[in-house]
Design a protein around this nucleic acid. Structure first.
Length: 482
RNA sequence: GGCGCAUUAGUCUAGUUGGCCUAGGACGCCGCCCUCUCAAGGCGGAGAUCGCGGGUUCGAAUCCCGCAUGCGCUACCA
């Protein structure tokens, strides 16, 4: 049984890189009928916050990445955050010390930083020089008793460590390049390398799938697993996600937080599809892939080892595809909070909700993100303000006569249905010997306040005869004012 | 500095063991069609000597070496 985990550190919101990592782990778990674990990596207490944890959980839920063990759902390896698991790390570290696989280091962080700087300046290797390794055990114990603070360092053995990576193949590291890294800080707290290994071991994680910025750290962890007398899990290091300039994705590239994409009106299904394609592909030609297909086909074998570049245009296009696939009711349902958020509809306005229901199909093919609906539909839910560069279409003899005649015909119409409106107004255009496309523009401006709008006649039907008449009248007034 | 990873069109990518690649798909772009505006849709088009230089081979985007470039790691951050 595969056991996978996503282990974010709650120092901020969930960004798209983390979301991609979470998704790949989730897909692997679902594909194999395995277990997906969410674990909060908060060993850095000063930078971790509860708000960040909540935000991450919310975004994971929004993306539909449910976990089988972790915060809010429990599991056999509780707690699923590192604060609260201190005893485990201490136990492992002391075991290592007793076996002589780790040693006390009394160097102070400031001294180390200074030495590192000097070494760099002199062109020497900045690695820890192991000066505390040879302090005799009794002496070290004595210093400990005196109350001298110390960190616990791992004694890196000689040799070579090979990381068997499922995506990159075997990657060899010479142990001589790995310094005796710190396991326990001088305040007794565990470092990342110790905590992940102990947690992944205790949680029986079978596959560690994470960003490839962790690859150089992996030999340290492999060494730790072995020192602890355990086998290591399988590793897979995902390529980084970079911006179009090849630099790691950051705020400079615009929005990188999952929450922002949600706010802008991206659909979770589109995000999931897009994220999946960041480093993975189904075949040589499929781009639109639904969740079920993803779950049924995802495999590490088809994960690329080169950096994945974030392409905003493609995400936007993809989102539009998913919006177009939505049914009428579904579309209206997801649009509702957006309209409410924009202040165009009151949350409890049932009549407006129904109007939105009728209007939604008109804009399905015209929006790429949900928030695009706001400017397009505003004229149906509030008063219109004719945008300046459209004003000219209300002036001039021809336009004025079109508007007058339109007003007359709308009044005389029996049923105020789009097909009847269209028939009548086309007849009008014929009678006035004006091309349809030319005749309808002033009407559009009068009704929607803009040269661009959803289909005119359907919009008029939804707006209703009274409102339409009012707007035609308003437009004629504007024309008269010059 | 050391170690590691990567390098296919403006962009995202396919190309698992070298020949079916005269390099496939998609975004974007351009043109035409459709059309009440804008979209959507249909059809067509431009765009890659597969980072550079060697080598192995009958044959290399695919294997090897070197170089260049980019990125990551090198913390008592994760």
């Amino acid at each position: 049984m595969l056991r996978l985990r996503f282990a974010p550190s709650p120092t901020g919101y969930l960004h798209v890189g983390g979301a991609r990592t979470a998704l790949f782990n989730w897909l692997l778990a679902r594909r194999s009928g395995g277990v997906f674990i969410l674990r909060i990596e908060d060993t850095d207490i000063s930078r971790s916050t509860e708000e960040a944890i909540e935000a991450i959980i919310e975004d994971m839920r929004w993306l539909g990445l449910d976990w089988d063990e972790g915060p809010e759902v429990g599991g056999d390896h509780w707690p699923y955050r590192q604060t609260g698991r201190a005893a485990l790390y201490l136990e492992a570290a002391h075991g290592l010390l007793e076996e002589g696989r780790a040693y006390r280091c009394f160097c102070l962080p400031e001294e180390l930083a200074e030495r590192r700087e000097r070494a760099a300046a002199e062109g020497r290797s900045p690695m820890y020089d192991r000066r505390c390794r040879d302090i005799p055990a009794e002496e070290a114990a004595g210093m400990e008793k005196e109350g001298r603070p110390f960190a616990l360092r791992f004694l890196v053995p000689e040799g070579e460590t090979v990381v068997e990576d499922l995506i990159r193949g075997d990657v060899a590291f010479s142990n001589a390049e790995i310094e005796d890294f710190v396991l326990l800080r001088n305040d007794g707290s565990p470092t990342y390398n110790l905590a992940v290994v102990v947690d992944d071991l205790e949680m029986r994680v079978s596959h560690v799938v994470r960003g490839d910025d962790h690859l150089p750290n992996t030999p340290k962890q492999v060494l730790l697993y072995r020192a602890l007398g355990a086998g290591e899990p399988a590793f897979a290091h995902l390529p980084m996600i970079v911006g179009q300039d090849g630099k790691p994705l950051s705020k400079r590239h615009g929005d990188v937080s999952v929450g922002r994409f949600r706010e802008m009106g991206f659909l979770p299904e589109a995000m999931v599809n897009f994220l999946a394609l960041l480093g993975w592909s189904l075949d040589d030609s499929t781009t639109l892939i639904d969740r079920e297909t993803l779950v049924a086909n995802f495999a590490l074998e088809r994960v690329s080892s080169k950096p994945a570049v974030w392409d905003d245009d493609k995400l936007t296009w993809m989102n539009a595809q998913y919006i177009m696939a939505l049914g009428d009711e579904e579309l209206a349902r997801v649009l509702m909070p957006v309209m409410v958020g924009a202040g165009l509809i009151a949350a409890d306005d049932e009549e407006a909700r129904e109007r939105l229901q009728r209007a939604a199909p008109l804009i399905r093919e015209r929006i790429k993100v949900l928030s695009d609906a706001v400017p397009l539909l505003a004229f149906l839910f509030g008063e219109v303000e004719v945008v300046d560069d459209s004003r000219e279409l209300l002036r001039g003899d021809e336009n004025v006569s079109i508007l007058r005649e339109t007003g007359k015909r709308l009044l005389e119409l029996g049923r105020f249905a789009s097909s009847d409106i269209e028939t009548s107004l086309r007849d009008m255009a014929d009678e006035l010997s004006i091309k349809a496309r030319k005749a309808f523009q002033p009407i559009r401006v009068a009704i929607a306040g803009s040269k661009v709008s959803p289909p005119l006649f359907e919009s008029m039907e939804i707006l209703g005869r009274e409102k339409c008449m009012q707007r035609i009248a308003r437009a004629l007034e504007t024309a008269r004012e010059g």
